[in-house]
């Protein structure tokens, strides 16, 4: 194993789908602690072939088998930020954590949803105690074909981030309407009587999708809603409500926090805890659906 000395500036490699890599290229000059230019790869296997040319990796969705690549990256003490939605099994995460605990590099698995501008504003309000003690999180996520499991995990993570805790109980209902359409409802109970409702609905008719969530705290509340944030486009005798696409600011925020963590050697060095919580809650939800009983 090579010796890792955390450099003042990191050589960063990015691997994943075109859209996310394109977003990364737009924010490259805004990241601090980074040696430009970033290296870009479509697949993790391609990245491993040039392993000596970077210090840290940002693994985005659609980049290949993260578990097997992680062994090589950890053995070479390469810091790794992995978009958590890539990982969908507890075993996979345990393996990843295990190999990184044997290295000297930093491993962070995080969901980008937490870094969206709206999420950051709400979480900051909670951190600042403006909303008081959180009591209720309510989420609706409707989409045409997004992989439901990945989406659900990031939503669970969002709810858990509000309460800064895993739920104590999970009650879930799932309705499947053919191959391309289904809805799932999660009803979670958190310590101190906290509660969360998550509605995930998948169907072709949802088009561009719809997302809303709210937090009800003891001293205040926050409401994030596509319904509120829509603009109106009038064309060809038709009115269309449209939302602005997510900007690259969320990925900037997610990557910058990772770089700061590496360069400041902040602990814990290996951090997959949020991901493991989300996966365990999803497993409880599946158990609840199967048994038709409350899982705890």
């Amino acid at each position: 194993m090579t010796t890792t000395q955390t450099p003042a500036s990191l050589r960063l490699a990015v691997v994943g789908n075109d859209q996310d890599r394109n977003a990364m290229s737009h924010i490259e000059n805004r990241l601090s602690g980074l040696v430009a230019p970033m290296l870009q790869f479509e697949w993790l296997d391609d990245l491993l072939a040039e392993i000596d040319s970077f210090d840290a990796v940002v693994a985005l969705p659609d980049s290949g088998n993260a578990s097997s690549a992680a062994e090589t990256l950890a053995a070479s003490d390469k810091h790794l930020l992995i978009e958590a939605s890539i990982l969908t099994s507890v075993d996979e995460v345990s393996h990843l954590r295990s190999v990184y605990e044997q290295s000297k590099a930093t491993l962070v698995a995080s969901y980008r949803l937490r870094y969206q501008a709206a999420s950051k504003a709400v979480l900051a309000s909670l951190d600042n105690k403006k909303l008081g003690r959180p009591g209720l999180v309510r989420i609706h996520a409707w989409s045409p074909s997004h992989p439901a499991d990945e989406q659900l995990l990031s939503l669970i993570d969002l709810a858990c981030s509000v309460f800064q805790s895993a739920p104590e109980t999970v009650w879930a209902i799932q309705k499947i309407f053919g191959q391309a359409s289904r809805c799932m409802n999660l009803h979670m109970g958190f310590p101190q009587n906290g509660m969360a409702l998550i509605d995930v609905s998948i169907g072709d008719s949802f088009g561009a999708g719809y997302f809303t969530w709210s937090v009800i705290g003891s001293d205040g509340a926050a409401y994030i809603d596509d319904h509120h944030d829509m603009q109106l486009l009038i064309r060809d005798s038709q009115r269309r409500a449209i939302t602005a696409p997510d900007t690259s600011l969320s990925i900037l925020s997610q990557v910058q926090e990772f770089l700061d963590r590496v360069t400041s050697r902040r602990e814990p060095r290996v951090d997959t805890s949020d991901l493991e919580v989300a996966l365990n809650v999803a497993a409880s939800a599946m158990q609840s659906i199967t048994t038709e009983a409350v899982a705890s």
Partner: peptide, 23 residues
């Protein structure tokens, strides 16, 4: 918060509260 299982397989939920004037 209440999850409702309704006739015809319809799923419902209700979130209700007296959340305070500041909210």
């Amino acid at each position: 918060t209440v999850t409702l299982e309704m006739a015809g397989g319809i799923v419902g939920t209700l979130a209700i509260g007296r959340i305070g004037a500041s909210s």
